[in-house]
């Protein structure tokens, strides 16, 4: 039952968003590489605590409601973040902590 609720929760924003109306792709429509990536990440997701899983589901809903250009901006930022060397990433993390503590 809990799984059913989770699936419905995942589907609601999907259908409400422009992506859901036009661009949603089922599993069979993913390329083998995309399937592999999704499967790997699914396994990682399964290892997360439930609280964290719920948080990711909320963020997913939020992400789905973002305009495409905002989604694209986040993707680009992620690519930049991923490309940081360990030192730069550590520095970024320190800045993130500072930024977050300043914010609250």
């Amino acid at each position: 039952m809990r799984e059913l609720v989770a699936v419905v929760l995942l589907l609601v924003p999907l259908l409400a968003s422009p992506v859901g109306a036009q661009g949603w792709r089922g599993w069979d429509q993913l390329s083998p590489e995309e399937q592999r990536r999704a499967w790997d990440n699914y396994q990682r997701y399964q290892q997360l605590p439930q609280q964290r899983q719920r948080m990711i589901e909320r963020r997913y809903q939020q992400f789905q409601t973002m305009p495409p250009q905002e989604q694209q901006r986040l993707r680009q930022n992620y690519e930049t973040y991923r490309g940081l060397d360990p030192g730069a990433r550590h520095e970024f993390t320190e800045k993130y902590r500072r930024w977050k503590s300043d914010r609250h």
Binding site: L11, L14, R25, W27, A38, N41, E57, Y60, L74, R82
Partner: peptide
Amino acid sequence: AELASAPDLFMDLPILRHM
């Protein structure tokens, strides 16, 4: 079912984790 219903969630998982 979770994966079949929202494969893009899992493709974008790293982005969601660091959103």
